[in-house]
Simulated assay, not measured.
Amino acid sequence: MKYLTPLVAITLLSACAIGPDFKRPIAEIPDSFMFAPSSTGQQVLDTAWWRQFNDPQLDLYVEEAVLNNRNLAIALANVNAAEGELAVARSAFFPSIGYQANVTRGRSAAERLAGGQQVTKNYQLLGNVNWEIDLWGGLRRQSESANAQLEASKQARRGVLLSLAGSTVQTYLQLLGLDQQLRIAQNTLNSYQKTIELFELQFKYGVVARITLEQVRSQYQQAEANIPPIEKSHCQHRKCTVDSIRT
């Protein structure tokens, strides 16, 4: 057949689409890490896993971090924006209906020539329907792209949330460890103080030599010198906890 009829041509064109259909690439991903416990699953990460520590103070820190963290707020805004773009892309598949109403008030030409005072009102209502047929598949591709962007935004927000909770929990646990170290260092210092008092009495009555007393005093000074670095690290970790909540 030398020439195609317009109907056949339209039918052939309607079967065309812009670009091939998207196919997810095959990637070999293991079900779990090599040394991960068998009971660890994806559902554990999707829950408030930090509550397993049964620490109300830690729960407050994580909740405050989720509410006030700027990066998480940006990620949530990106998700909302992607949802809006997907809604706009999908709305193109449906017809759009518009209308316009006008009211005019005045005297006709005949009334003005006759000198009449009668005022008339004219009402006008206009409607329109617009529907773009997805002949080339462009609208479908836009919808698929918007849906992929939405899923990517959701995963990005989930990644920010996991990173935020993990860093907050890690910093808090390090802070607890420093609290314990500080208590041990202070208790050690107090013990050396009592030891010095005991050796001073023994030296006073000639039970021990001065060198023994000075050795005990040296141990006390060493224990005293260990406290400031721990206090400094404690303050830094506490500051890091606050920064991780607000950053």
Rank of each mutant, 00 (worst) to 15 (best):
1 M>F: 03
3 Y>S: 13
10 I>Y: 12
13 L>H: 06
14 S>R: 10
16 C>S: 12
16 C>H: 03
16 C>Y: 00
16 C>F: 03
18 I>V: 14
19 G>P: 02
19 G>R: 06
20 P>Q: 12
20 P>F: 00
21 D>I: 01
22 F>E: 01
23 K>I: 06
23 K>P: 00
25 P>I: 08
30 P>R: 13
33 F>W: 15
34 M>N: 14
36 A>K: 12
37 P>S: 05
40 T>F: 08
40 T>S: 03
42 Q>L: 10
43 Q>R: 08
44 V>D: 15
45 L>G: 09
46 D>F: 00
47 T>I: 03
48 A>G: 06
51 R>E: 15
51 R>F: 02
54 N>T: 04
54 N>P: 01
60 L>F: 00
61 Y>K: 02
64 E>S: 12
65 A>K: 05
66 V>R: 13
67 L>S: 05
68 N>K: 03
69 N>A: 01
69 N>K: 07
70 R>N: 05
70 R>C: 01
70 R>V: 09
71 N>P: 00
72 L>W: 06
72 L>S: 09
73 A>D: 11
80 N>H: 08
81 A>I: 02
85 E>W: 10
86 L>V: 04
90 R>D: 15
91 S>F: 01
92 A>Y: 09
94 F>M: 15
96 S>A: 13
99 Y>L: 03
100 Q>A: 15
100 Q>P: 00
101 A>L: 02
102 N>R: 09
102 N>M: 07
106 G>I: 10
107 R>E: 09
112 R>L: 14
113 L>A: 13
114 A>D: 11
115 G>I: 14
119 V>N: 02
122 N>D: 09
122 N>H: 05
122 N>L: 11
125 L>P: 04
128 N>C: 00
129 V>F: 05
129 V>C: 05
134 D>G: 06
134 D>P: 06
141 R>S: 10
141 R>Q: 11
142 Q>G: 08
143 S>N: 13
144 E>Q: 14
144 E>M: 04
148 A>V: 04
148 A>F: 04
150 L>F: 05
150 L>A: 02
151 E>H: 15
153 S>P: 04
155 Q>A: 14
157 R>S: 09
161 L>W: 06
161 L>K: 08
161 L>F: 08
163 S>G: 14
163 S>F: 04
163 S>L: 07
163 S>K: 07
164 L>T: 15
164 L>S: 08
164 L>V: 13
166 G>I: 05
170 Q>D: 11
171 T>V: 07
172 Y>M: 03
174 Q>T: 15
174 Q>S: 14
175 L>K: 05
175 L>C: 01
175 L>I: 01
176 L>V: 10
177 G>N: 15
178 L>I: 14
179 D>H: 10
183 R>M: 02
188 T>S: 11
190 N>Q: 11
193 Q>L: 10
193 Q>H: 12
198 L>F: 11
198 L>M: 13
200 E>V: 02
201 L>M: 08
201 L>T: 06
203 F>E: 04
204 K>G: 04
206 G>E: 13
207 V>K: 14
210 R>S: 07
215 Q>P: 00
215 Q>A: 02
220 Y>L: 04
220 Y>G: 00
221 Q>P: 00
221 Q>G: 02
222 Q>K: 03
224 E>M: 07
224 E>L: 12
226 N>Q: 15
226 N>E: 15
226 N>P: 00
227 I>A: 10
228 P>G: 04
230 I>G: 06
230 I>E: 07
232 K>M: 03
234 H>G: 10
